[in-house]
Amino acid sequence: MTASQINITEFIKSSERSVSTARESSVAHLGALERVRTKAVVAKGVEMTFQSGVESSLVLQGVDLEIPYGEIQLLMGPSGSGKTTFLSILAGILTPTAGTVHLLGQEITQMSKDELSKFRLKNIGFIFQGFNLFPALTAAENVEVALRMKGIKGSAAKREAQDLLYQVGLSNRVNYLPRDLSGGQKQRVAIARALAGNPRLIMADEPTASLDSHSGHTVIELLRDLAKESNRTVLIVTHDPRLIDVADRVTYLEDGILKN
């Protein structure tokens, strides 16, 4: 073979390798797109490092998570494992150091602060361990605040707030201030608030942690019903093993690494 023949052969082989690599890459890309399209939550390679002075700590180490539409996903793990940090990233409240997060088919890690706010307002309902209700507002007014932020105003907001409180079994407590409600009732007001505007995602942080067994059970059933009846995707960060029964999937996070 002459030198030119060798070069042509090498070129053909190289081209075949490139085509093959591109095909594989394209298939992988299509797969990823498909996953993003069919899953409510897709987190890929999420890393989070917190800097404290000269010290830095890696809280999340390349976490991947996918949650299909309409499922209840439990995220469990010991304290300090990075659960709440991961939830904050999935909710678009914290920006990861590395990795991507897609919610409802949109990559939130590329969004601006304003876009994220609008996305959360439209698509995510939050439930917090500490309820985070405005103490000066009644149950109905706390729900109305969320509705008003979502553009529902006036008598429509009043009606909707009453409906939501009815759904969570608090129709007889609409005019109560948080201080006059039990822990379970407060959490149900918070759930009603989270449902304001009918978001497709619910993110709950230790929703039963501050509740007694009976109230906790009521809240758990409520979350399950709300998820299944309206095909909502629910992500719950919790220590509470009672929630395992209502979950479609349970994932454990330990030392910033996810274990299914």
Partner: peptide, 18 residues
């Protein structure tokens, strides 16, 4: 005193202007 409630509004998606 109400920083957590304001934080909640922000988390829920309220703009700073709200």
């Amino acid at each position: 005193d109400h920083i957590k409630e304001f934080g909640t509004l922000k988390a829920m998606g309220a703009s700073d202007w709200v």
